[in-house]
């Protein structure tokens, strides 16, 4: 019964979220209908604090900016921010079925692995996790855009070389679209990062959207 209960509540919330993407709503007191967009599909941004927009509001994080950029060019795609701060690839693997089941994504931008590296976790484990995540998403019919990460250089050349190589290898093995480096033009530039030096600020997130955008367009193309 409890099992049913939890499914019901999460089913309901997922439905609520889905409902937002469905029919146009009606404004209060019979006024003109509010201009709620009719979504052409759902893009899920799946990742860690870099996706969640650590230190910023969700509105300033790249998923929201991406949705606005797409909308400004006439592409009414809903972009769901499913970033979880502090998450590792193991965490994402644990919840990937939940994402697929609840959010029914057409496209998934997967940006995970940064925390694995910062905690010095085994690169082999991370590669295996990301490969499994991509495969499960692809099995559900979603197009996967894999955002590559580069590890901070202080971890040493051996570790960082192995780490950086994971993303091209997974993309090659799974056929996912690869963005070589999510933080291209952002990492190590003080004016684009928060004081902690690793999380992009609002301006940094705008650069991330520029980096991602061509690959998102490719993913949209592949959906046709």
């Amino acid at each position: 019964m409890r099992f049913l209960g939890c499914w019901t509540i999460w089913g309901l919330t997922a439905l609520m979220a889905a409902a937002c993407s469905g029919e146009p709503g009606t404004g209060p007191s019979g006024a003109l209908p509010a201009p709620t967009p009719v979504w052409q599909g759902t893009i899920v941004a799946l990742g860690d604090s870099l996706t969640a927009g650590y230190g910023l509001s969700e509105d300033e994080a790249w998923p929201a900016l991406l949705e606005r950029r797409l909308a400004s060019e006439g592409r009414a795609w809903r972009v769901v921010n499913a970033g979880v701060s502090g998450e590792t690839s193991s965490g994402t693997l644990s919840r990937v079925d939940w994402v697929v089941g609840r959010l029914k994504p057409d496209i998934v931008i997967l940006a995970i692995g940064g925390n694995d590296g910062l905690r010095g976790l085994d690169v082999g484990l991370m590669k295996s996790n990301i490969t499994s995540i991509v495969q499960r998403l692809q099995d559900s019919g979603a197009v996967v855009v894999l955002a590559g990460m580069k590890m901070v250089r202080n971890l040493g050349p051996d570790y960082t070389t192995q780490f950086d190589a994971v993303y091209p290898a997974v993309a090659r093995d799974t056929g996912a679209l690869l963005v070589p480096f999510l933080l291209e033009g952002v990492a190590s530039i003080p004016s684009l990062n928060l004081a902690d030096g690793i999380h992009p600020n609002a301006a940094g997130h705008r650069v991330v959207v520029k980096t991602l955008y061509p690959y998102v367009l490719k993913a949209l193309e592949s959906r046709r």
Binding site: R2, E87, S94
Partner: peptide
């Protein structure tokens, strides 16, 4: 309550 969150993504 457990039934609200135990199916949510968690560690």
């Amino acid at each position: 309550p457990p039934e609200v969150l135990e199916d949510a993504p968690q560690t």
